[in-house]
Simulated scan of single mutants.
Amino acid sequence: MKGSSHAYIGAAVGAIAGFQIDATDPLTITTSAIIGSISALVPDLDTNGTASNRITLSKSFSQWLMRLVGMGLLIAIIFQFFQTGITPNIIIFAGIGALLLVIFRFIKQRRMLTLTGILVMAIGFVMHQSIGILLAGSYIIIASFLAHRSYTHSLIGLAFYAFILHHIHLQWPIDGLFIAGTAGYASHLIADLKLLPVNRRGVKLFAPIWNKEW
């Protein structure tokens, strides 16, 4: 099923969840619809998934950023060297700068999603070590190494995503966040079932315990 179809279904499911929470509040219903739509695309963050190409940093931008940071670190280290001489911190940061300047030449597009996840985790650390953001970053990193329609399309993926939403909700208690987000994610798994005539392939709901496609 196409990503746009998943987004529409997720929006409808999210809106229903928002209606159940507060049928008289258009803001709650609208917010829940948006959350459901976004969550319905999350399972496709795995390798070759449609959503992975949309949130992934572009290769050219990532190369430019790594080159800029690498050069910046090396320049800063040179100035620091003339002030303090060689210290353990100078050696470490010089190594990081040199590594970035080497890596940007060899990194491939499929690893851009991994870098995106690392960036999200870095944001989580900056935001007072936000558990929800850190978990979201870890989800993206893990998904970047998974085959399409594998664990992100299973009940384990659904449980992990619900766990992420729970922690995000603890920090930002948005009405409908947990229910609409979980329902939106679940709608993707249901819409990809082989039981539906539009799908040639199904999903391994019970992986890794049972790898049968449903």
Score class of each variant (00 low, 15 high):
A180Y: 12
S37P: 01
I9G: 02
M112C: 13
A183R: 07
L134W: 09
V13G: 03
V203E: 02
D46Q: 13
W214Y: 07
S138L: 15
Y161T: 05
P43C: 07
I123E: 04
N211H: 07
I209D: 03
A76Y: 08
A207D: 10
Q109K: 13
L68Q: 00
I142T: 11
I96H: 01
L177Y: 02
L135R: 03
I96Y: 09
Q129E: 14
H6F: 08
H148F: 10
M66P: 01
Q20K: 11
G10K: 11
I35S: 08
Q80E: 10
I164K: 11
I118L: 14
M1V: 08
T114D: 02
A33W: 12
G95P: 00
G85R: 11
G132S: 05
G137E: 08
G202D: 08
F81G: 00
G3Y: 14
S130E: 11
A147P: 06
A76V: 04
H167S: 04
N89F: 15
P88D: 14
D25N: 15
V69K: 01
L134V: 08
G14A: 05
I142S: 07
R200H: 08
T114W: 13
A186I: 04
G70M: 00
R54Y: 12
G117W: 13
T30K: 08
L100W: 04
I209Y: 05
L146E: 13
F82I: 13
S52L: 01
I96R: 00
L100T: 06
Y8M: 10
H153A: 08
F81K: 05
S154R: 01
P197T: 02
G3L: 14
G117A: 07
V126H: 13
L119W: 09
E213C: 03
L205W: 04
G124S: 03
G202W: 02
T84C: 09
H128E: 15
I131L: 09
N199L: 03
F82E: 08
H128L: 12
Q83D: 15
V69Y: 07
